[in-house]
């Protein structure tokens, strides 16, 4: 890997994104609108539901958005022939993957800051722990989405397929992450699956930051599991970027 090539790649991806105002607006605004809607739905109901679901969603949004954007972007790179051209240059697979992670990670950071700020200061989400840690967890979730999106794009031949991978990769994790039913109340087999899936840890970490004033000792192991998934997905994803093709 080469820092010059990695940074040039990240800069190129951000430049492409900068030209696409609508995508940037959607990335930033959709989570805000959904959080606002959720707060509004539960505004007059008892049970403090928004405070229970809101933090988990702050972890889910960056994951979902980055998954979609990355899987489509890398698929385009494959189908347009730019990937084949890049692989005949000194660019290394790692340069491309880390370039994507850096570019979309910085977008995710922006998204996380805006969404967290909106949830806390506009919707009145109560966070016991440090806000900065919430943003860090959101950033990990976004990188997880980017890494899994890169991996998924390796199995898609068309953009139709790539879009279908979103529900396939994301919805099962969403159902099992503890948002609908607390994970310890799931049937044992499902609980075991839930214990392996990364989004479960993302949601756990978000919950910990919300309810504990000093959550770091509980959050760090969760971040560790997410980091492991990121590394694993990037490694597997790099296997799908082949220099030689049939």
């Amino acid at each position: 890997m080469n820092a010059r090539i990695t940074l040039a790649t990240a800069a190129r991806i951000l430049r492409q994104l900068r030209g696409d105002h609508r995508t940037v607006a959607l990335m930033i605004l959709v989570p805000v609108v959904l959080l606002g809607l959720l707060a509004w739905i539960y505004a007059d109901l008892p049970g403090d539901v928004f405070n229970r679901i809101g933090p988990a969603l702050l972890g889910v949004f960056p994951f979902v958005v980055m998954f979609i954007v990355t899987s489509i972007a890398t698929l385009r790179e494959r189908t347009s022939g730019t990937l084949e051209r890049l692989l005949t240059t000194p660019l290394n697979k790692g340069d491309l993957m880390v370039g994507y992670a850096l570019a979309f990670g910085s977008m995710a950071f922006l998204q996380a800051v805006v969404a967290t700020g909106f949830a806390v200061w506009v919707c009145g989400l109560e966070i016991a722990g440090p806000l900065g840690l919430l943003v860090v967890v959101a950033l990990f979730d976004a990188l997880l989405g980017t890494a899994l999106g890169l991996l998924a794009s390796g199995f898609a031949r068309t953009e139709f397929q790539a879009v279908q991978f979103m529900p396939a990769f994301v919805l099962p994790q969403f159902l099992l992450c503890g948002l609908l039913v607390p994970r310890e109340l799931l049937p044992p087999a499902l609980e075991a699956i839930s214990d392996v899936l990364p989004l479960s840890y993302a949601v756990d970490a978000m919950k910990d930051v919300t309810v504990q004033t000093d959550p770091l000792s509980d959050v760090l192991p969760s971040l560790g599991v997410i980091a492991l998934w990121i590394v694993l997905s990037l490694a597997l994803g790099s296997l799908t970027l082949r220099r030689r093709t049939p």
Binding site: R12, R15, Q16, S80, G81
Partner: peptide, 8 residues
């Protein structure tokens, strides 16, 4: 096939 980025 032209393999350049159309959006740049």
């Amino acid at each position: 096939a032209p393999s350049v980025y159309g959006d740049l």
